[in-house]
Design a binder for these strands. Structure first.
Length: 821
RNA sequence: GGGCGGUUAGCUCAGCUGGUUAGAGCACCUGCCUUACAAGCAGGGGGUCACAGGUUCGAGUCCUGUACCGCCCACCA
């Protein structure tokens, strides 16, 4: 700071008192102190009074609030924070919320385990219910049967568990120094989010984008719920082809190949390729199944591959997606044998739709598999197929031809599930997306993807979408459908004409709220009403993150001020879910893109280049590394990886980050402890240094503008370390203390301070604590910006008053000279 | 089977629109406690830029093909 030395007219740059500062910088002490100050000063607050064009809006990912955060989260959330801190210094009014995605299966699973309970949507709420936590030391097999409780009681427990997780998550984010506006915190299960999700449903319903249908859908038998295409993944599994002989009416036989003999009872047709010479004569005839002696039509289809198996196959209700297609196209009967719990349901041959040429045998065989799960049923059916008594026609041999042939094949799983998906007919709600594909792609192209090639992933997924979005889940902890059904004289729901909730009554639970126009006593009664027991797919709610923070349709609706948003940071594995659904919602509700930029972080891989995961036991805990290296060092590590790039976890980089922090501390102490006359920058070397600094500012700014923060960091770091401290600082040390060159000394001190001031600001988004610490020693007072994070981002205009050096090469020449010595 | 990334020093990675002897950090070797910093400084060794062709005066950079690694999607009888 400049003061006037007593007895002179010369103003004097006063040094800081180095002896008052600790010898070493301690992140563990400084970081909490600075966090408290930022909080106190409110520098992360959004200012609703400022106009949209001065505002930078972030659609932050709400992490799943169950279990724990891992290094990958720290990595990608830091990336968003780097961009935000840059924009804040550019003078932007930052809208930076944080949400917790707490509804959904992960939470349910945790609550089931923590309390040993199960939920039943139809049980009445018990206000006095007390549930003890399971002692974590209890072995699973020693647990009593789970207590079945009402959905509302279950949800209360979910709230308890997620509230604990959210506190832990928030602490971690604060420790990491995320500059989130904690006034804008939300959860996806809170009332506002529920109201907005239900409002979304009503709006889509009104616009004709939502329908309800009883149809085959992908079904997870463990969770007993429908799932959507986006939640499905393939897993390689062992299987076996079983060659099974069917009879043909009028004589002869054919041999099909199947991996799912247990579905033989669900067989409703036989298919082969129309050009397949082996089967051409059979189309239009009927085949007869072994074991059950059920006649089924033989038809031709281009989808049948003559090369696969025996070239002829059985169509079941339902073995896979193609079965569903054939069932529709050929108008085949429905013979579903698998129940929602994954067990074989009871059927009687001889009943309508279950005709058999030998009902007695069919029933005897079928009775053996009733109530069994798929694998067990398969073993039993295979044994039955080995008996010639079960041949498809009189006098036939054992239907199973040879031994099953083992194969490896991809099987569809629910991404959170443990059993293969089944296709079951059930009543589900859908959002129509198949008719929106072109428009979804067009919207995707209006968004800038960083890195650009990630946009292609979105486009491929959208173009290849095969199904509308199944949004209903037969689960518990989620947002309810704001829907009731009228009951007919037999108390059966009339699904065609649902009763919708009035917008002003949201949020509500139709299982406890009374349908409009009815009395609660009419619930479940003939002529009365019933609530829709299903809940939304969690993505139905989390895809509304822009609307939730924008309070769409609520008091204080800010959509006009925030929407479309500036950036959506997220990981690339959820392009097909979170990004896709958010774009879809935004299109259907507002005919707009939800944001202008998508910013995609890569994954953290372990040194074997595998994705880090809990199951691999190679997870490093984020808190541990923050405690050991400090937030600045951890942020340095995240900041050194560019967007989209998967990065191997390398603890060395934390050390490098920590070293940079130390260097900044020491360089700051040195520069600000220099004293001398105040004056202009006039010396040729100093001017040359400033010219170098100026180009650095331009490069770092350009990089940040393209979301390439890692390049900005690298440029700044190499300038700071090499140009500034190793070269310039060494070159002017003497002159900065000179007694006989007051002008040169003034010039050196002014340049040193400018160099420090500017590089600190360039580093501020990456290492917020150390930069604010050094900033506070002198520059905070000089500029009136008490925190560096609200100081102006450096611009080349700052240097306009400083003349260019006489020779552009002065600086490198001086460096060469010192190197030679 | 289709698509998208990647392959550069022992390790982790830069290298933007093709242009002088290919870079950084870590690790390694040598020398220095030079009053900001030994968590530092000065210097050094180490790379046929996966491979094969091609375009060009000139290719790590552009084109074609191959191999390997990873991801996404499809296949599921």
């Amino acid at each position: 700071m400049a003061t006037t030395e007593p007895g002179t007219q010369q103003s004097w740059v006063k040094p800081i008192d180095v002896s008052a500062l600790p010898k070493r910088f301690e992140p563990g002490e400084a970081e909490p102190r600075w966090r408290a100050l930022w909080e106190q000063w409110g520098i992360h607050r959004y200012d609703p009074a400022r106009p949209r064009q001065e505002t930078f809006v972030v659609d932050t990912p709400p992490p799943t609030a169950s279990g724990s955060l891992h290094v990958g989260h720290v990595f990608s959330y830091t990336h968003a924070d780097l961009i935000v801190r840059y924009q804040r210094m550019r003078g932007k009014n930052i809208f930076y919320p944080m949400g917790w995605d707490d509804n959904g299966l992960p939470t349910e699973r945790r609550v089931q385990n923590v309390f040993n309970v199960r939920s039943d949507a139809f049980l009445p709420f018990d206000a006095d219910l007390e549930i003890e936590r399971v002692d974590p030391k209890t072995k699973p097999r020693d647990l009593p049967r789970p207590t079945v409780i009402s959905r509302r009681n279950f949800i209360d427990l979910c709230h308890i568990v997620t509230a604990e997780d959210e506190v832990a998550f928030k602490d971690l984010w604060k420790m990491l120094g995320l500059s989130v506006d904690w006034n804008e915190e939300y959860t996806t299960i809170e009332d506002r989010s529920r109201a907005i999700a239900q409002r979304s449903f009503l709006d889509l319903y009104e616009k004709g984008h939502i329908y309800q249908v009883e149809a085959p859908t992908m079904w997870d038998v463990d969770f007993s719920t429908a799932v959507a295409q986006a939640e499905v993944e393939d897993r390689e599994r062992d299987g076996a082809f079983h060659d099974i002989e069917f009879g043909v009416e009028g004589g002869g036989s054919l041999v099909i190949s199947t991996t799912r003999p247990e579905l033989l009872a669900a067989c409703v047709g036989i298919a082969a390729n129309p050009d397949d010479e082996r089967y051409k004569g059979l189309f239009g005839k009927r085949a007869v199944s072994p074991v059950y002696r059920v006649p089924v039509p033989i038809f031709a289809t281009e989808l049948a591959d003559p090369e696969k198996g025996t070239g002829v196959l059985m169509v079941c209700t339902f073995g896979d997606q193609t079965d569903v297609q054939w069932w529709r196209e050929q108008e085949l009967p429905l013979r579903q044998v698998l129940g929602r719990d994954g067990r074989i349901v009871d059927r009687k041959y001889g009943d309508p739709g279950w005709e058999s040429d030998d009902p007695e045998r069919a029933n005897a065989n079928y009775a053996e598999i009733v109530g069994k799960r798929v694998n067990q049923a398969r073993r039993i059916v295979v044994e039955q197929l080995r008996e010639s008594a079960n041949a498809a026609y009189e006098g036939g041999g054992a239907p199973l031809q040879g031994e099953p042939r083992p194969i490896k094949h991809a099987v569809r799983f629910f991404e959170k599930g443990d059993s293969p998906l089944e296709y079951l007919t059930s009543r589900q709600w859908f959002v129509r997306l198949m008719d929106q594909k072109d428009e979804l792609i067009r919207k995707g192209r209006q968004i800038k993807w960083h890195p650009e090639y990630m946009g292609k992933r979105y486009e491929d997924w959208t173009a290849n979408l095969g199904l509308d979005w199944a949004i209903s889940r037969q689960r518990h902890f989620g947002v309810q459908f704001p829907v009731w059904y009228r009951l007919d004289d037999q108390a059966n729901p009339v699904y065609d004409d649902p009763i919708l909730a009035a917008p002003e009554t949201l949020p509500l639970d139709p299982m406890s709220a009374t349908a409009p126009g009815y009395e609660e006593s009419q619930r479940g009664q003939p002529g009365g009403f019933a609530g829709e027991p299903d809940v939304f797919d969690t993505w139905f709610t989390s895809s509304l993150s822009p609307q939730i923070v924008g309070r769409w349709g609520e008091d204080g609706d800010k959509m006009a001020d925030l929407f479309p948003m500036d950036i959506r940071p997220q990981a690339h594995d959820i392009i097909r879910t979170w990004a896709f659904y958010t774009i879809a919602k935004s299109l259907l509700h507002h005919d707009e893109v939800p944001w202008h930029n998508v910013v995609l972080s890569g994954w953290i891989l372990d040194p074997d280049r595998k994705k880090m995961s809990k199951s691999r036991g190679n997870v490093v805990t984020p808190t541990g590394m923050l405690e050991e290296y400090g937030a600045d060092a951890v942020r340095y590590w995240a900041g050194s990886a560019r967007l989209g790039a998967d990065t191997a976890f390398d603890e060395q980089v934390f050390r490098v980050g920590k070293r940079l922090v130390t260097k900044l501390y020491n360089a700051g102490k040195y520069v600000l402890s220099q004293e001398g006359p105040e004056g202009e920058i006039t010396n040729e070397l100093d001017l040359a240094f400033i010219a170098e600094l100026r180009t650095l500012v331009d490069r770092a700014t350009a990089a940040f503008d393209e979301y390439e923060y890692s390049r900005a960091l690298e440029e700044t770091e190499s300038f700071f370390w090499s140009t500034f401290t190793d070269n310039y600082l060494e070159l002017v040390k003497k002159r900065a203390r000179s007694e006989d060159d007051p002008q040169g000394r003034a010039s050196a001190i002014a340049t040193l301070r400018t160099g420090l001031n500017v590089t600190l600001r360039l580093f501020a988004p990456f290492v917020p604590t150390i930069t604010d610490e050094v900033w506070s020693w002198a520059f905070a007072g000089e500029t009136g910006k008490k925190s560096i994070h609200v100081a102006d981002w450096p611009s080349s205009a700052e240097f306009d008053a400083i003349p260019a050096p006489a020779n552009k090469r002065s600086f490198s020449a001086a460096c060469d000279a010192i190197a030679a010595v």
